[in-house]
Computed example of a mutant assay.
Amino acid sequence: MYQKIGVSAYKKDLTNSLELDNYLSHPHKSYDTIHVAGTNGKGTTCHTIASILQTAGYKVGLYTSPHLKDFRERIKVNGDMITKEEVTSFVSQHKSYLQEHKLSFFEMTVGMAFEIFKKRKVDIAVIETGLGGRLDSTNIITPILSIITSIDKDHTDLLGKTLSKIAVEKAGIIKSGVPVLINEHRPRLRSQFKKIAKMRSSEIYFSQGSRSQNDKSNHIDTQVQNECLAQRAVEILRLRSDYNITDSQITLGISETHRKTGLRGRYELISTNPKVIADVAHNPAGIRSLIYKLQEESFHHLHIVFGAVKGKAIEDVIQHLPKHASYYLCEPNSDRKLSIEELNSKFKEFDLETQPSTSVTNALHYAKIKAEENDLILVTGSTFVVAEIL
């Protein structure tokens, strides 16, 4: 599976997904779907939309990835993980087919989610792409709304090395006649999305106004950005369908996203003495936004526990990290981990103060020892790193 072993698990066509869908008798056609792609913010956006829909009284399926602690985090109904029995039942019932067709982890998980949502009789399911969009295993659905959260550089070995190429991959979820909502302000990318949407007779909406092409990222306050995107998505649902959702339900749903959906690892307060915050930011745009958000905090000195996985342009990430913080480098418990030797070497190229450690828990332990009363500890760099301290 990609989460564990990386690129070698990525499949570059939808044949298996389409065949599995046919074998399962197209379960996703039994309920409405919203399809969400993007470089950053798609998980938070999915959870926020799900929370709003739940607040309005709908039974909501939620499929996201990756998980932090438990595989079942990927598949939820009204904020609750599916049961272990549902997982084992799906696997045992379809074991011979799954083995015969050599399905990937992604392919099996998507099929499982779609079938369980059907059995649970959800009204609507919010579906997050795993990687890219055009060739993602989820891209067999015809949603009532497609959403693209952001375009930035990540997984460039698979999606392309330019923003334009990455945009094409994300735009692969735009379906004929299905409206699409896009969170993008850069004129060149907006024009690209407009062209693709027009070719597919898809009405296009933007969640924010156009800004200078020289502004290389989307709106820096990602939390507000994701909330506004989710709100705009629900407004479009109200406009184009019979979903009955009030403004007060939107406001309440946004405010209760964490409680109602179990969203974790997004600027999450872990402890207060010392203050520890964990965030799954792992690419240049995500780290840039995270460091900007830290400006809202009041602290004397910043300690950062940082680990990463292979396949990332780690130099592009490090350049956005603050120069005067103390860094506690670590290796997450993953086959894809970036070795502590290589990580430390990269940090040294930027003249950053580091203390290497072979484990996340040890790195956090050392950071807590060094931290004084008014200091702040940030744990970030990878989903795998954050997962080990939750």
Rank of each mutant, 00 (worst) to 15 (best):
Y243T: 09
E372H: 13
T64Y: 00
T33H: 01
L24K: 06
T361Y: 03
M1K: 09
Q93F: 09
L18H: 02
K275W: 01
V91S: 10
H28T: 07
V309M: 10
R259A: 14
G286R: 04
D215E: 15
Q208A: 13
E331W: 00
T354F: 01
R240D: 10
Y366K: 12
Y58F: 10
S89C: 11
L343C: 06
P356D: 02
V386P: 03
Q208R: 14
S30N: 15
H365Q: 15
A313Y: 09
K195G: 00
L18D: 00
A285E: 15
V234R: 05
Q223M: 11
D154P: 06
K216Y: 08
E100M: 11
H101Q: 11
K102E: 15
H47P: 05
Q249W: 04
L159G: 06
T64F: 03
M112Q: 15
I270R: 10
Q54S: 12
A113K: 07
S17W: 01
V276Q: 03
Y292I: 01
E169R: 07
E227A: 12
E268H: 10
T251D: 14
S89F: 10
T129H: 00
C46E: 03
E235H: 10
T246Y: 01
S339K: 06
L145P: 06
Q223R: 12
K118Q: 15
G133W: 05
S150Q: 12
R264A: 15
G381M: 05
L135V: 01
R200F: 07
V224D: 15
S137Y: 05
R72P: 13
Y58I: 02
E235G: 05
I82P: 13
S217G: 12
K121W: 05
T33C: 12
S191Y: 04
K84G: 09
D316A: 12
N22T: 12
L18K: 15
Y63V: 03
V122Q: 01
I49E: 07
L376N: 04
G6Q: 07
E115T: 13
L20P: 08
A125L: 02
E115A: 05
E19R: 14
T129G: 04
R232A: 14
V360H: 04
I389W: 02
T272P: 02
R259L: 13
I5E: 15
E296R: 09
